[in-house]
Amino acid sequence: MGFISHIKLFKEYLKIAVATALEYRANFVIQVLAMAFNDAFLLVFWFLFFDRFKLINGWALEELMILYALLTLAYGIAGVFFGNRSQIPKLIAEGKLDFYLNLPKEELFHILISKSSSFAVGDIVFGLLLGAYVLTLSQWPLFLLFVVISTSFVVSFGVLVGSLGFYFGNAEETARTLWMGMISLSSNPFSIFKGGARIILLTLIPAGFVTGIPVELLKNFTWSWFGILVGAAVIFLLLSIIIFRRGLRRYESGSMMTARI
């Protein structure tokens, strides 16, 4: 019930994740490497791009490398430690939230931590290597703080799109599309977006907060944008918890599954 018992639970799930990875060692290694290469390929594109064009509205290769380090670490941590996020719509549709709802732990936290993605380990490896290459020592503390904030945005967004399952029946495809859209939007230089697009990326799909704003803050720190970033992170987190909890009232536990077919 308390905070400490939830931390203990977190530790137990990590143990299970390690045990599972060891049980399927070869697959684990392949997936970690595949994801790290996947990230590297995407960065190669930007190397080639900036080799030809140098600057996009003030963003250069360096900003983009910081963006990728932040992006891969945020998604990596979200995937390793809160990896069950992607399953939420499926768990809702198939009535598999029952498991969590029968146990004496906060359900959303419990759902999120109960699965870990091996692919995401590859993201973390890549992000750390890239960060070590591109960041100066003095940038690291702020960078790590931004990693935490970005991870919070990523997980909150995942919960929000996943919660669509409570309201629209089978929302797996919708949630995945919005999630992929979020990744695409947050993996491009924020400087290319103007006007309405910028507003959307700082509200509806908070991709700008995941990478754009933190990268710009690392280059040029202002307290006002930092305040907005932290405030938005808190708002999104609370919003995701509220929407999820309200959604639980509509949960059907797969009761009507047979009737649907």
Binding site: S5, Y13, I16, A19, E23, Y24, L103
Partner: peptide, 18 residues
Amino acid sequence: WYHLPPIDSFNLFAAIYD
């Protein structure tokens, strides 16, 4: 847990129930 021995799951439940 399908891929793990029951004892691992039991240990986890012990943590869940404090």
